[in-house]
Design a protein around this nucleic acid. Sequence first.
DNA 1: GCATGATCATGC
DNA 2: GCATGATCATGC
Length: 461
Amino acid sequence: MDLPYNPNDKYSIIEYAKKLTGKTLREACNENILVHNYSGKGNFGQILEKYYFLYEPNSDAEPDFAIAGLELKSTPLKQLQNADYRSKERLVLNIINYFEVVTQDFETSSFWKKNANILLIFYLHQAGYNLLDYIIKLVDEWNFPNTDLEIIKQDWELIKKKVADGKAHELSEGDTYYLGACTKGANASSVRKQPFSNTPAKQRAFSLKQGYVNHIIASIANDNSATYGKLIPNLDVAKKQTIEDIVINKFKTYYNKSESEILQSLGLKLNLQAKNYYANLTKSILGIELNSEIEEFKKADIIVKTIRLKENNLPKEDISFPTFKYEELVEEDWEESAFKEILEHKFLFVFFQFEGNHLILKKVKFWNMPFADMEKAKEVWHRTKEIVENGDIVKKFKGVTRYTNFPSKKFSTVSHVRPHAQNANDTYPLPVTDKVTNEKAYTKHCFWLNNTYVRDEIYFK
DNA sequence: GCATGATCATGC
DNA sequence: GCATGATCATGC
């Protein structure tokens, strides 16, 4: 069959692909597209392959254009209030074959064979639109810069090691920096065997973190609106030190110094009242300009939390997360819940401790939630969902309705649910009317990490 | 002194 | 106007 491009020539493929820019699938493909019978997630890509590139979708280990060595990926964008584009999600690459990965080296791995050179098609996802009418915004090839590739290789090695240790079922996206092991499959019961344990493991795929995809988007779109400072300046450094090594080394210089001593030795004057005070202090210690973002943190979706410990080592406050909408919570499954999504991130904790009125830098710690604790967080989430579903939020106690049934600190060592609102009248609608109050809305709440959990499982470990 | 509920301040 | 990080108030 005659193709409108040469599938053996990378530049011919890219040139043909770029004609998609500004178009929808409906506009770019012939009318056969109207009888497509692809449904469910991933069908944008399948339609693109069959009706634009004119080959049958497959699940080969080879790149989609094998001779040209090019893998085709289409992935959604979302648009921010300020009109900027961001990735709507992580970029899912090939499935991790647990039996195969432990026998491979990175350079000859099936991951690298398939994904060394990717042709990316970014389309704007718009709620309520037929996917044939999503507008394709950006098209270009992507090659990994060598410093990024070094980190991706380290991530790949860590995933391999976890499988080799018989812990494929404990994999988490938070384990790694740029390359994640994300769940892939219809639901939590999509499991498969692993080589060194009898415990079935969830099906997972290699994926690029959302923050990394944002970096790709900015790079392809030549968007230089944000400035970045690097922790890792070049490949030599990347080969010798991990992100973690570099950050901890830089902070170590200031361990056991007070905030004012740190500011003084950095020659820094910061507004203590400013909301970004701690973020700026962190940047300064890491040698990043205050008006710049930390490139590696952005790419790895790292969440930085500054903790102030009391003299007895207990964090002064619990850690809050964004409020949840009751109506959305009851529609979610744990696996794709907003709470789990946050807990799957890599965190950097910066610990200060009070000595009288002074705050002393004690240590920094990279952390992601261990598997067993994630299971405990899941129980808190399930209990919360159940309470909302049953309209069972408000509890009568001694005739007074000032308590809720939401899981408190007694329910779990890991997490609890508390208000997080402007005031008691700052509410979200309830999917089920509360049985006690007959109210159809309730004060905004969120999940919190218990301060005792932060002390025992993050600070002391 | 902590758990729980409530609220504030800043910045986008 | 609201999300986010931070903090306060009360009662046990």
